[in-house]
C-alpha cells in the first residue's frame, strides 16, 4: 500500500437549521462513511453551523456541463407563463 495515500474525497452538505436546505460546504478526505461524517463535522461545523450533515463520495456526483448550458436549460427559456407575473389580474382583486 502506498505510504502517501490521502484517502478518498467526499463532498459535504450541511443543513444549518431544521427545515433548511442542505447546502454544499466543501470537501473532506476519508476512508469510509463514518470517518467522512466525523471529518465533515470537525472541518465544517466547529461553531454550531449545522443540525445535519450529508457526505457523498465525490465520484458519485454528476454535474451538468457548462459548455452545454444553452441547450441544456433551453426548455425553460420560452415559458414565461410559468411565472405568476405573466397573468393579467382584474382591477381590484385582492390577495391573489
Amino acid at each position: 500500500m502506498s505510504a502517501d495515500t490521502q484517502l478518498e474525497k467526499w463532498e459535504v452538505f450541511i443543513q444549518s437549521k431544521p427545515g433548511a436546505n442542505f447546502v454544499h460546504a466543501g470537501c473532506v478526505h476519508a476512508s469510509d462513511k463514518k470517518m467522512a461524517l466525523q471529518n465533515a463535522r470537525d472541518t465544517y461545523t466547529r461553531r454550531g453551523e449545522g443540525t445535519s450533515i450529508w457526505v457523498v463520495p465525490c465520484d458519485a456526483i454528476v454535474a451538468s456541463n457548462p459548455d452545454e448550458n444553452d441547450m441544456f436549460f433551453d426548455p425553460a427559456n420560452d415559458k414565461t407563463y410559468r411565472m405568476p407575473t405573466f397573468y393579467v389580474m382584474p382591477e381590484g382583486a385582492k390577495a391573489i
Binding site: 490521502q6 466543501g26 470537501c27 472541518t43
Partner: peptide, 25 residues
C-alpha cells in the same frame, strides 16, 4: 484547530483545479 481547518478548505479548493493533495504536499 481553525488554522488546520482553513488549510483543509483551501486544499479542497485547489483540488477542484485538478491537482491532488499528495502532489501539493
Amino acid at each position: 484547530q481553525d488554522e488546520g481547518g482553513h488549510g483543509l478548505y483551501l486544499y479542497s479548493a485547489a483540488e477542484t483545479l485538478g491537482i491532488s493533495r499528495s502532489e501539493m504536499i
